[in-house]
């Protein structure tokens, strides 16, 4: 049977209120089949509200939502959640505790014969690697297994869009990687447009094909993981993805300068209005003799493959700098600071 591919989801100018609180302000977004779109932002920035609006669990105050080329929500139309054909993976999985694994997965399957339904359930159980748990009750499963059952249940009716609400936050680190790999592989294979909410920026950078950063109900930037990490639109957005150095800049003739020195032409893409935004790994430190150098290390945090050093510069500013294991540093040591050679990579 030839599958009709989903045409994706288009959200335009969506606004929503909880009483007096404006939880979404004119949000626009496009989800493409087979691609995973991640939403990141602080708690209360409106990520889950956007998901709930797309699912039809909330009613927007303005804007429109198209799923599969059909309007499901605008000023005049509000299609019920059960008629939207969306898959929703809840943070706590929300498995039906009174139904077995197989019956949980079969819950959303309609207009199929008993045999077809069985076939689909078996196929999904196989895909998520839980074939032997077909008859088990949800409370007998571990967190990771419950998550996979919830995924299989959401995928079973072949939804036009998949909405994931912090789907891996309940799992421990080791499980998280394994389960997220299975989940994203299945979603990409099934060509389902996916919107995933996460509060973990690393998860977004690893899982997403596109990332939108949200703040106070607005999308501040939508870009590829690399773009949004390296060239965030402002310091606030940049900070979501980890430490960032915001250095004031001055223009002398045709050249830009900051406290570390002159900024090369190929670095100008990191320039914002009166400053340059650079990640810790774009700077290097080297030991300086005696009290010489541009700064002094005040803190060293161990990371995989090196350290994150906090350096107070001679101008009084604080810089975050990532360094490998090639030099050994100590707190209180004086260092020289320089830009790494290749920018934008």
């Amino acid at each position: 049977m030839k599958r009709i591919l989903s045409k994706g989801v288009i959200v335009q100018g969506l606004s929503h209120r909880y009483g007096d609180f404006e939880s979404l302000r004119g949000v626009s977004l496009e989800l493409v089949p087979g691609r995973v779109h991640c939403l990141v932002g602080a708690s209360g920035s409106g990520k889950s509200t956007l998901l709930r609006n797309i699912a039809g669990l909330e009613r927007p105050t303005a804007g429109s939502i198209h799923i599969d080329g059909q309007v499901v929500s605008n000023r005049n139309i509000q299609i019920l959640p059960e008629q939207r054909n969306v898959g929703y993976l809840f943070q706590d999985f929300a498995l039906f505790p009174h139904l077995s694994v197989a019956r949980n997965i079969a819950f959303g399957l309609k207009s199929l014969s008993r045999e077809q339904r069985r076939g689909r359930v078996t196929q999904l159980l196989q895909q998520v690697g839980l074939l032997e748990y077909e008859k088990a009750m949800p409370h007998r499963l571990s967190g990771g297994q419950q998550q996979r059952v919830a995924l299989a249940r959401a995928l079973a009716p072949r939804p036009s869009v998949m909405l994931l609400d912090e789907p891996f936050s309940g799992l421990d680190t080791a499980l998280r990687r394994e389960v997220s790999e299975i989940t994203l592989r299945l979603l990409r294979e099934s060509e389902t447009p996916t919107l995933m909410v996460t509060h973990d920026p690393m998860e977004a950078l690893n899982c997403g094909d596109q990332i939108s950063a949200m703040d106070h109900g607005e999308i501040t930037q939508t870009d590829s993981p690399n773009e949004i990490y390296q060239r965030a639109i402002d310091a606030e957005t940049a900070r979501i993805f980890g430490p960032i150095n915001e250095l004031p800049v001055t223009k002398q003739g045709q050249q830009w300068h900051c406290q570390i020195g002159q900024i090369q032409p190929d670095w100008e893409l990191y320039l914002r209005e009166q400053s340059i935004l650079i990640r810790p790994e774009m700077l290097r430190i080297e030991p300086a003799a005696g009290d010489a150098g541009q700064g002094q290390i005040t803190r060293l945090n161990r990371e995989v493959g090196g350290f994150l050093a906090t350096v107070v510069t001679s101008c009084g500013g604080e810089l975050f700098i990532r360094c490998g294991n090639e030099h050994s540093f100590d707190v209180g040591q004086h260092v020289r600071i320089r830009f790494v050679a290749n920018a934008g990579t």
Binding site: D92, A94, R153
Partner: peptide, 11 residues
């Protein structure tokens, strides 16, 4: 959440 899960699954 369970009620909402059921509704998004078409019930």
């Amino acid at each position: 959440c369970v009620i909402e899960a059921s509704r998004t699954l078409g019930a």
